[in-house]
């Protein structure tokens, strides 16, 4: 649990709450005593398009962008988006991937097929692949919009912060009336991944 610096790459589809997830993570690292930089793109890209966030932490961070091949953790909110950005992972990096499939327009209109064998292809990129069903976890809480906090919870197992940082960040970032369900979602996500040994 002594990673001095790290790069976390988040990928999802507009509307999945990936930006809010990255807000909570960024705030959690700041609470954990790290310098933090985080970059994303708003506006046109958000309308159902691919959404990415670059989050970097360490004693002092310069670039807000992660370079390909250097991400320690890829948090993907959608399966194909995981594969699209898997080349950002470092050879030792880990990926937490939501098994959910969201059809892009070309697939939804029958012009292309949703790619097959994604899990296999991901496993070829990283030896540390964690597939999770965040949608099912969120639906079991009757809040489809909580997929993002389930993913934060799952990913938190692979990050060097105590649980309190995430929960404090979450409470600071969300309107009070939805804090409860999001805390539950975070814990549900955390339960999806077994705790990792110290020293990673």
């Amino acid at each position: 649990m002594t990673q001095a610096r790290g790069n976390v790459f988040l990928a999802g589809v507009g509307g999945q709450g990936a930006l809010l997830a990255s807000e909570v993570l960024g705030e959690a690292f700041l609470l954990g005593g790290y310098d933090v930089k985080k970059s994303e793109v708003h506006g046109m890209a958000q309308r159902g398009g691919a959404v990415t966030t670059h989050l970097r932490y360490g004693p002092k961070v310069f670039s807000p962008l992660i370079e390909p091949g250097t991400a320690d953790l890829l948090i993907a909110f959608e399966k194909m988006e995981a594969l699209r950005f898997a080349h950002f992972l470092s050879p030792e990096g880990a990926a937490v991937v939501n098994a959910q499939e969201i059809m892009p327009p070309s697939v939804a209109t029958g012009r292309e097929r949703y790619p097959e064998r994604i899990e296999e292809r991901l496993a070829g990129v990283t030896p540390n692949l964690y597939m999770v069903d965040a949608l099912a976890a969120a639906l079991s809480l009757r809040e489809v919009r909580a997929v993002n906090m389930v993913m934060v919870g799952a990913a938190s197992r692979l990050l060097p912060l105590p649980e309190t940082c995430y929960l404090e960040a979450l409470r600071g970032r969300l309107p009070e009336r939805i804090v409860g369900v999001n805390e539950k979602a975070f814990r549900a996500g955390r339960a999806l991944l077994a705790p990792r040994g110290a020293g990673r």
Partner: peptide, 28 residues
């Protein structure tokens, strides 16, 4: 990006290999 700056100044380029053949996901 850091990579573009590094490649430009060093004159050397490290190739990256994004997954090929994925359907695009433009905004809608």
């Amino acid at each position: 990006s850091p990579r573009i700056v590094r490649d430009g100044i060093s004159g050397k380029s490290v190739p990256v290999h994004p997954a090929e053949g994925l359907p695009g996901r433009p905004p809608n």
